[in-house]
């Protein structure tokens, strides 16, 4: 028991140290600032600028969050405050299934539905020429993928808001929506922020689905209809060919390290927001 436990407890440190050790080669040669802010990515010439990938990842993640947050918030309010109890029982399997669908299947769906939709309808309608494989397509697929996570946390949070508080507001003559707006949302705000933060961390590290629809062009995107590249996609796409160049290997490990740090940081931060709901 203790051996298993210590194995698990030290896993994050182990992950961090191994990845740090592997990317040390690159960090020593270039320095953190140059790696993150340099635009030029030419591994064969020994130039490793992660800026396009970092920006691509940030665009995709933020857009996905922007799409899914309002949808999740409204749905969570709906199923916990307005809809009948029975409806929540229908919603649970829906959330489970959405969360269970593998990312590759989301990717397939993105290629089948979202990419053609953007290239055939949305792009021409806005007068923009686009392949369909774009930041927007990735963000849209991603936003669907993180809906179950965000929605689940939000529903749990809304359930913890005491009934007395809501009844007090209603008995003072407020309408239901006023109660939701001034009592429920205010009381649940830290939880909502945490839910979004968890979603953000998850979206940032998502690999396959994004890789399949984002276009994979190493360029700093200028519009959401441009193809882009994300950090996880960079690792997944290039692993086969790196063994010959030690610096390249180190570069991909650096990308993994960045992902690890971002994910740990966001999860840590959000736990402080959520801890007041005495989840622990």
């Amino acid at each position: 028991m203790l051996i298993s436990l210590s194995l698990v407890a030290f896993l994050p440190f182990l992950l961090f140290s191994v990845l740090y050790f592997k990317s040390f080669l690159l960090l020593r040669d270039f320095g953190l600032g140059q790696l993150i802010f340099s635009h030029s990515w030419h591994p064969s010439r020994g130039e490793f600028g992660f800026y396009p990938f970092i920006i691509g990842s940030i665009w995709v993640t933020l857009l996905a969050i922007l799409i899914s947050t309002p949808i999740c918030l409204l749905t969570a309010i709906n199923v916990t405050q307005y809809a009948r109890k029975r409806f929540l029982r229908i919603m649970h399997p829906v959330i489970d299934i959405l969360a269970g669908i593998p990312s590759v299947v989301y990717g397939v769906w993105g290629i089948l539905v979202i990419v053609p939709f953007i290239s055939r309808y949305l792009g021409p309608w806005l007068g923009i020429k686009t392949m369909g494989y774009s930041i927007l397509a990735a963000a849209f697929v991603l936003s669907i993928m993180i809906i179950p996570f965000i929605l689940n946390i939000m529903i749990e949070i809304f359930k913890t808001i005491p009934m007395e508080l809501k009844e007090a507001a209603l008995s003072l003559g407020s309408t239901k929506w006023q109660m939701v707006k001034h009592v429920l949302l205010r009381k649940a705000l830290p939880g909502i922020i945490a839910a979004v933060g968890f979603g953000l961390a998850r979206a940032f590290g998502e690999t396959m689905a994004v890789l399949m629809v984002v276009g994979n062009v190493v360029k700093v995107p200028t519009s959401v209809f441009d193809p882009g590249y994300t950090l996880p996609a960079l690792i997944a796409n290039n692993y086969g060919e790196v063994l010959s160049i030690p610096q390249y290997d180190s570069a991909l490990m650096f990308a993994a390290l960045l992902l690890l740090v971002v994910s740990l940081f966001f999860n840590l931060l959000m736990h402080f927001f959520i801890s007041r709901y005495n989840k622990y």
Partner: peptide, 12 residues
């Protein structure tokens, strides 16, 4: 925290 780590990081 470990649950939140992306699977690609595990892959690497």
């Amino acid at each position: 925290l470990i649950w939140g780590i992306p699977s690609i990081v595990y892959g690497a």
